[in-house]
Amino acid sequence: MTAFDWQRMLLDQFPLMFLAEVAVRAAFAFLAVFLFLRISGRRGIRQLSLFEVLIILTLGSAAGDVSFYEDVPLLPITVVFVTLLTIYRLSVWGMSHSPRFGRWLEGKPVTIIRDGLYELSSLNGLSISSDEFFMELRQQGVEHLGQVRLGILEIDGDVSLFFYDRDEVRMGLSVLPDDHRAEHRAVPHGGVYACTRCGFTQPLEPGQAQACPRCDNRTWTMALGHPRAR
Rank of each mutant, 00 (worst) to 15 (best):
L10D: 07
G102T: 03
I45V: 15
T111Q: 09
G94Y: 08
L126R: 06
T221Q: 13
A186I: 01
G41K: 02
L90F: 14
A26I: 03
W220R: 12
D156S: 05
V79R: 11
T196I: 14
G41A: 00
L137T: 15
A209D: 14
D156N: 13
G225F: 02
L85I: 05
G141T: 05
F134V: 00
F28C: 01
G146Q: 01
Q147W: 05
L16A: 13
R43N: 10
E205T: 10
M95N: 02
V169A: 13
G157C: 09
G60M: 01
F4R: 02
G41E: 05
V79P: 04
G199P: 09
V148R: 06
L74C: 01
T196Y: 06
I155T: 15
E132W: 03
M17K: 09
P177N: 11
G157D: 12
V142R: 04
W220F: 05
A23D: 03
F18Y: 11
P15H: 06
I77E: 12
L11F: 12
L204Q: 08
L224N: 05
I45D: 03
P203F: 06
S40H: 00
P15G: 07
R25Y: 04
E52Y: 01
D167M: 02
A182V: 03
A3M: 09
S122Q: 11
D158E: 15
S40E: 00
D179Q: 13
L11E: 10
R149N: 03
G41Q: 01
S40R: 00
T86P: 06
H97T: 11
R42H: 04
C195P: 13
E132M: 09
Q13T: 03
Q147L: 05
P177I: 01
R103M: 03
R185E: 15
P109M: 08
E143F: 00
M171F: 14
V80G: 03
L75D: 10
K108S: 13
E183V: 11
W93L: 14
G225I: 04
N217R: 08
V33I: 15
S61Q: 12
R100L: 03
L123T: 13
P203R: 12
L31C: 15
L59T: 04
A26V: 07
L90Y: 06
Q202F: 00
S98G: 10
G190P: 08
F14D: 10
G172T: 04
A186R: 14
E52H: 03
S174F: 06
V192C: 13
G116A: 06
D178Y: 00
C195M: 12
L224W: 01
V24S: 11
L84K: 09
I45Q: 10
G94P: 07
E154C: 08
R103W: 02
I56E: 12
S160N: 12
V187A: 08
H189W: 01
Q210Y: 05
L153K: 12
Q139P: 00
G157L: 06
Y193D: 07
Q7G: 14
R218V: 02
R38L: 06
L19H: 13
L161K: 10
D158Y: 02
S40C: 03
D131H: 08
F163V: 01
D115H: 15
Q13P: 07
H189Y: 02
P109V: 13
K108F: 01
V175E: 07
M17N: 13
T83R: 14
L50M: 14
C212M: 11
G151V: 05
R181E: 04
M17V: 08
E168Y: 04
H97M: 09
